[in-house]
Deep mutational scan, measured.
Amino acid sequence: MQGVVKVNSALNMRSGPGSNYGVIGTLRNNDKVEIIKEVDGWYEIRFNGKVGYASKSYITIVN
């Protein structure tokens, strides 16, 4: 499943599904990501070869 990031500035990509996990990357508005699965309001995603987590509130699913 594919998604597009929708933010005003930047979205942190984290090592786990929560804001208490470390930041491993930064996503920008309109970045395209691969959604692997949903975990407690977060998406596990793949972006630029990295796998991490981002809040699903800021990612819109596209077909």
Rank of each mutant, 00 (worst) to 15 (best):
P17Q: 02
S57Y: 11
V62A: 09
K50T: 10
M1D: 12
G22V: 14
K6T: 13
T60P: 05
K56Y: 05
Y43K: 01
G49H: 15
G18D: 07
E44G: 05
V33G: 01
V33P: 03
V62I: 10
N29H: 13
N29F: 10
S57R: 11
G25W: 05
R28A: 13
I24A: 06
L11K: 13
N63K: 09
G3I: 03
T60Y: 12
S19K: 10
A10G: 13
Y58P: 03
T60D: 15
I59L: 05
R46I: 15
G18Y: 01
Y53K: 00
N20M: 12
K50V: 15
P17E: 01
N48L: 11
Y53P: 00
K6F: 04
I35G: 01
S19W: 10
V51M: 11
N63G: 13
G22C: 05
V5E: 01
T60R: 11
G18P: 00
S15A: 13
K32W: 13
E34S: 05
I36S: 05
Y58S: 14
N30D: 15
G3Y: 02
G22S: 12
S19H: 15
R14T: 11
M13P: 03
A54P: 00
V33K: 00
M13E: 01
I24Q: 04
V33N: 00
V7N: 09
I59W: 02
N12F: 11
N20Q: 12
K50F: 12
V7L: 06
V4Y: 04
G49P: 03
L11G: 07
N63P: 13
I35T: 02
G25T: 10
I45A: 02
G3N: 02
I45F: 06
K56E: 06
K32M: 15
S57F: 08
G49V: 06
Y53H: 03
T26L: 10
G16Y: 02
G41S: 10
V5R: 01
Y58M: 12
N8F: 07
G49S: 10
N20P: 03
V51E: 10
K37S: 14
W42F: 08
K32G: 07
W42P: 00
V33W: 02
V5N: 01
N48F: 11
M13S: 02
A54L: 09
Y21P: 01
N30C: 05
S15Q: 09
S9T: 13
A10N: 11
K50D: 14
S57L: 13
Y43W: 08
W42C: 02
R14L: 15
R46Q: 15
Y43Q: 01
K56V: 12
P17D: 01
S57G: 09
N29T: 09
V51T: 14
R46T: 15
K6P: 02
Y53Q: 00
L11E: 11
E34M: 05
V62G: 09
Y43F: 13
V62M: 11
N29Q: 10
W42H: 04
S9N: 13
N20D: 15
G41F: 08
P17L: 02
N12M: 08
W42V: 02
M13I: 10
K50I: 15
K32I: 14
S15P: 01
N8E: 15
M1N: 12
I35M: 04
L27H: 00
E44D: 02
N8K: 11
S57E: 14
N48P: 02
Q2K: 07
N8V: 14
L27I: 08
Y53F: 14
N48Y: 09
G25S: 11
G16S: 03
G16C: 03
S19R: 11
G25A: 13
N8T: 14
V7R: 07
V39P: 00
K37A: 14
D40N: 13
V4P: 01
N20A: 13
D31G: 03
V23N: 05
V23F: 04
G18A: 05
N12Y: 13
G16P: 00
L11A: 13
K37Y: 09
K50C: 05
G16E: 03
K50N: 14
R14Y: 15
R14C: 04
G22Q: 14
I36V: 10
G41D: 12
Y58R: 07
Q2M: 15
R46N: 15
G16D: 02
R46F: 15
I35V: 11
F47R: 05
G3A: 08
E38C: 05
M13D: 00
S9E: 14
W42K: 00
M1V: 14
K32R: 10
E44Q: 08
